[in-house]
Design a protein around this nucleic acid. Structure first.
Lengths: 226, 226, 226, 226
DNA sequence: TATGAATGAGAATTCATTCAT
DNA sequence: TATGAATGAATTCTCATTCAT
């Protein structure tokens, strides 16, 4: 019974009109978990419906499409993240302190919203060219600018090593931090702030032992403090 | 046409029987690229056939299934990688030198086989429980043991900072290194050895400037960012 | 397993590459009949598959979509019709003879291709704005121009009554002729050329008896010479 | 709220019980327009609800089903039309005058109720076998009898040409007249009575110019109609 | 080796309809 | 009267895979 080319229907409820928030949020949380664990394409609307206790078709009472669910989850997450980071970089503290907080905040976010983070990591690549998901690239870029800004500032005040390319450094940090969502277990024994501590220790001072610097060029690493 | 001893129907040519090797390899390369760029589930056998200039059904003369293609690509890649790393860790050199070479080798691998690396990164998660892909987890674990072994050795000889958990450190390094496949462009202006240099600089000595070090692990970390 | 936004696949076989013509034509004929009798939206691809003896999904081996089937049927029909009419209007005969042949040709077409005609009648309205079906409106317009051209020519040579608006006259004729597809039965006792004869009699001379003119409005339509 | 004798659940308010008449009529008008422009199957209850400013589910407080809406619209229209025509044919005037008025009345109806007419034209075919819509065929038949009766009467009194089959003539007239709903614009410059005038001119006297007989083949084609 | 036709199991989405509130 | 959540059946279309030629 499909028309030859049906005109687009009027929109359904969206996130911002505050209607049916309860059920929507519930379903979105379920979808986020499934998308994150199985991947978006591998998750069927039936999976979501089953988990939510309704028929898959009934999901369309709440959302326009499976894609729209993904968009809503990602948008919520990314706008939140941007705001969180913007607050940090706006602080009147030395770059080094701000970078630390960006890192800590990231690990905390992974702890609090592992699904959204995993989702972002997994799908943002495939979303690059899709118009409805332009915001992903945009916000990513804004975030990148904040982080790189802090790194550059840190180099300027002499806190950070200048031999490092800020862009490249940002990527190294970003990848190490966010990819941890793939092995970090929120309920595991390794707490997120401990992971952050460890990462910051490595990031700040490097892997080489402090007095290994002299040994670096090959000489006397004898005094090695351990 | 009847062979003296016909092969059991279940198994077609495999990589090692040296038949039709040329066409097979060609198709596998195409598949690897498509799998890597679009993702495995999003790549259809028709995509592969189109790119190879044959009909999708004809692919089944070469391979048992789409999954079998993925398995072959990944197995080739991972066994190679394991061998490569095994050579490095077997060298009679200080841990630090060996770790550097592991890192450099990884970036070089990304340069040489970006598709396989991307594939491994994207799909290995979803492959965790699939019997045919058990080798992925196994080899990953072997590789992890090699790297962690080097890190531990480095700590034992005093080259590497001991405050760092070796497992955690491995993950931080692994994630930063391999995730670079997502932004590294083999034909871009940023050469892979330069990327490796930059990463090793960060990894070795950390982000903090050398004269900031006194504030660092030095006692009075009052100004310390946290 | 749907990708977020799959790129459009390469085209399948089309009508003009002359491949698989046999099966294609068979299926198209079935589809035409179903579309014509049930209406396009009310015909499901399952209906077509059932009638063709294959699964509905298998139709997509031959055609890109249900819509594409409709387009092919209509295009074949309309281009043919245009050619047929173009031949007639190009003849070096008086307008009256050409108009008669247009009418007779139309009834003959209804006899020969009732499904395509019914389809055109039923669906062309809904197809107005759809890009893939622009040809429908275009060819319709070309045909209209041919007919109206003949009518105008007939008026100019004095064959046709000048009190009639040519456009309007065309529509009256067109609608009476083509709508007959809805009641004409190709295998019925009423042959198409008889129907054409009757229609032409009415069209030529009108409903009023030849000597009924005097009774007309009662007044002085004396010049009504027949 | 409990009525003394609650109506059986199967039947809700109908057109004739005078309840909620205003809203009902409003909704029916909306439905008629949508059904007429998009076609009945292509119109969703949601479309109707949207246009009426209520949710689609709420329509079921007024009507039993989407089909019931269509039935009500068509029945109203057709009973009215039958009555209108019945009045005309009952007049004590010559057949010719009555036929003219039937035609004029039809064009006027198209002008006044274009949606209902279009609806009738579009859907009556598909409704042929549906029990709830038997009235459509019945009334159509009654109307046909009236028209054919007038035509036959006209032939008997010598007003109408006798070489024409009355049934066939009726169909030609009916199709030309009613199909005009598809191009007639109630608010256009071409008024319905002008259209009727033009059609009647063509119908009465035919397309051939009054003195065209002699001009025809040049000779004495008195027996004209070819 | 390859084609071309087909299978069969899903996929997302639509939609008339119901019903508790 | 109307809402909002849900049903359940159907729809178009996709896709890995098979197999006779």
């Amino acid at each position: 019974m499909s028309a030859i080319r049906p005109e687009p229907r009027t929109r359904r409820r969206t996130a911002s009109d505050g209607t049916g928030t309860a059920r929507r949020a519930e379903i979105l949380a379920i979808a986020a978990e499934l998308f994150a664990t199985r991947g978006f394409p591998q998750t069927t609307v039936r999976d979501i419906g089953d988990e939510a206790g309704i028929l898959s078709g009934s999901l369309y009472h709440h959302f326009d499409s499976k894609e729209a669910m993904l968009a809503e989850i990602l948008r919520d997450f990314m706008e939140n993240l941007r705001a969180r980071f913007a607050e940090v970089v706006a602080q009147d503290r030395p770059p080094r302190a701000r970078l630390d907080e960006l890192v800590r905040g990231s690990f905390a976010t992974i702890h609090q919203q592992p699904h959204a983070v995993a989702l972002y990591q997994k799908e943002s690549g495939a979303l690059a060219g899709v118009p409805e998901f332009r915001f992903v690239g945009q916000i990513s870029l804004e975030i990148e600018k904040m982080w790189v800004g802090v790194i550059v500032a840190g180099q300027q005040v002499g806190d950070f090593r200048t031999g490092l390319d800020p862009e490249l450094t940002y990527r190294f940090i970003r990848d190490a931090v966010w990819t941890s969502v793939q092995w970090y277990r929120p309920r595991g024994r390794l707490r997120h702030d401990v992971v952050a501590d460890q990462y910051l220790l490595l990031l700040h001072s490097g892997l080489l032992a402090d007095d290994a610097g002299s040994a670096d060029a090959g000489s006397t690493s004898s005094a090695n403090g351990r």
